[in-house]
Design a binder for these strands. Structure first.
Lengths: 110, 110
DNA sequence: ATTATATATATAAACAGATTACATACGCGG
DNA sequence: CCGCGTATGTAATCTGTTTATATATATAAT
């Protein structure tokens, strides 16, 4: 992780939910996608993403099923639930607030 | 805290450094200032700010001295060091990156 | 043939910053 | 004199991330 890992804390789930909103996906693909979309700055660790999946599944934010695994290692796919979609909406709103406020608190004012 | 407390994690020090950049201050005042500037959304807990001070003093980001305490409870003032100023600059740059990237990762794209 | 690399998932133990709960103490208004 | 706002502090706990380790398949390189 190019950033201190604390920076992502609290946003990891939101980012995963956002990706699953588009289409079902799996751990490895999501990790690569985030690395790509973040210009290489956010490199979520295996353990982080898989423990996040466990947590989110327990919270009924996502559902899981095994892919057929043809042509490579087996994949466990995840799909967002209605509860997950609602949480994403809340987290998005929260982010818009945080973004505005942190910009005010952190940036130098003139 | 109106936000999940994980949201602030990793930014608490940066916000404190930013405030100390303007003038020396103390825990209670900084907490109130952040509550004010954040429209009441960021209510840093006592334990959080005082443990942050300890950490930052150990890291030589800040210096501390007792206020004279005239007219009320004693105050412990904090002052930012050169090391603290440099860290603030780094954290500000980091925030500019994070802000751009998280907006891309979290917001709905058209 | 075998070795390295990319793909893919998983768990236990350790780490670190934030919270909860508790404790202390001063000054002021009613 | 009692409550409230001001002001600081610590111990125990919580929680998400990391480090370390393990397993397994397919493909490219030597």
């Amino acid at each position: 992780m190019a950033f201190s890992s604390d920076i992502l804390r609290g946003h990891t789930e939101t980012v995963i939910l956002k990706i699953l909103l588009e289409k079902d996906s799996y751990g490895y693909e999501i990790t690569k996608r985030i690395l790509d979309d973040s210009e290489g700055l956010i490199d979520i660790k295996d353990a982080t993403i898989y423990t996040a999946f466990r947590r989110m599944e327990l919270d009924a934010l996502i559902l899981t099923y095994w892919g057929d695994g043809i042509g490579g290692a087996r994949r466990r796919y995840y799909s967002i639930t209605d509860k997950g979609k609602n949480l994403y909406k809340d987290k998005l709103d929260e982010w818009l607030d945080i973004d505005r406020i942190l910009n005010r608190l952190i940036r130098k004012q003139k």
